[in-house]
Design a protein around this nucleic acid. Structure first.
Lengths: 194, 194
DNA sequence: CATAATTTAGAACATATGTTCGAAAAAAAA
DNA sequence: TTTTTTTTCGAACATATGTTCTAAATTATG
């Protein structure tokens, strides 16, 4: 490996592991160069080639030029235990990445339990992303809390004036919405490990 | 906002925008403190509380303690044009995030075209992640190239000794594997926007 | 109000660090 | 080989930067 890429790799490694850039002298030691000016020589080239950025006369100001795609994570909620608020830490079973541009504070994810929505292509164990900021409308798939103890994913629709939670599975019955049914948000996307 | 969180926010902002930590004096200026020792005072507290890490006597060595969930992206491939290599840039229609721990070089994603796998819960427009390093076995859902011009997602299975690509849709027929059929990889996960 | 705890200030110090320059060494080209 | 280009070295320099200490100012507490 040539010295230049060796230096670049070392810098990237350190940026990642230490959270800050190495000094010129640290680089020199790491890549077996006796003189700091040798390192400068390569740093100049790496900057010219656009691989790195650095600021003049500034300690440890080297940074990586590569475009960073930014993500945020949203919590994945598993079983809801009675009484525990939906997003309580104890319900959390994981995190999933969301592109920053799609991210909003009102997103969270729910691990699907059961096959009541299988005809909508939502399987047991799938993770659905829910936007609390969007109230599910007729025809939408939404997340609903029933009696504050159970979260369920169902179609929402009206049948002869009454509102129902409608499963996508012939083996399950419609559930008429009552005062114990609270809409949580709209299902906006889905993840599955196969 | 109190001084401590003001400092913490400034540091995080700078780490993000500049790629390296600010100096103590830069912090002082930014949060309107006249003395560097005032900043030190708060830095010490932030370190004690576990919000930051820093190394003694080291310039710009402040780093953020929060666990960084690392992601990588894999390319999403759209329509395959005849002759063009599968992963060619011109076939790319986007990127999706993958947790670093799940990431491998051999992952890519394919936008599903059509509803031939709808009974397996894979819909038109879904994005499936394919691991090129795993050769699909009987019973697996795999990605296959047909005649180097078309990528398709199907079940793989044997029927009376012959290997078939089997759709999950009664309206489609099984396709017997021949010399023009190349396995690309196994489908390992799925994304859907609803 | 008096007292204690917290926060800020100022100055001085030690040094880690980037930079520069000329020359030597090594590698590549002619 | 000779010439040119690339790479490395060593030393010296200027300064950006973290640190410490004491005292003052501010805020909280009784």
């Amino acid at each position: 490996m040539n010295k230049q890429t060796e230096i670049l790799n070392y810098i990237n490694k350190k940026l990642n592991s230490e959270g800050h850039a190495p000094s010129v002298r640290e680089i020199a030691t790491a890549v077996n160069l006796k003189s700091t000016s040798s390192v400068q020589y390569h740093l100049d080239n790496l900057v010219k080639k656009g691989h790195l950025s650095k600021k003049a006369n500034l300690s440890r100001s080297i940074s990586n030029n590569k475009k960073i795609t930014n993500f945020k994570t949203i919590p994945v909620i598993g079983e809801i235990s009675a009484g525990t608020p939906l997003l309580a830490e104890e319900n959390k079973v994981g995190e999933i990445p969301i592109l920053e541009e799609k991210y909003s504070k009102d997103l969270f994810a729910l691990k699907v339990n059961g096959d009541s929505m299988i005809e909508a292509g939502i399987h047991d164990g799938d993770i659905v992303v829910i936007d609390k900021n969007i109230e599910p409308k007729n025809g939408d798939i939404g997340a609903f809390m029933i009696n504050d103890t159970e979260a369920t994913i169902k179609y929402l629709d009206s049948i002869s004036g009454k509102k129902y939670l409608i499963p996508a599975n012939k083996n399950y019955k419609n559930y008429e919405i009552n005062e114990n049914t609270q809409p949580v948000g709209k299902v906006v996307s889905l993840f599955r490990d196969i």
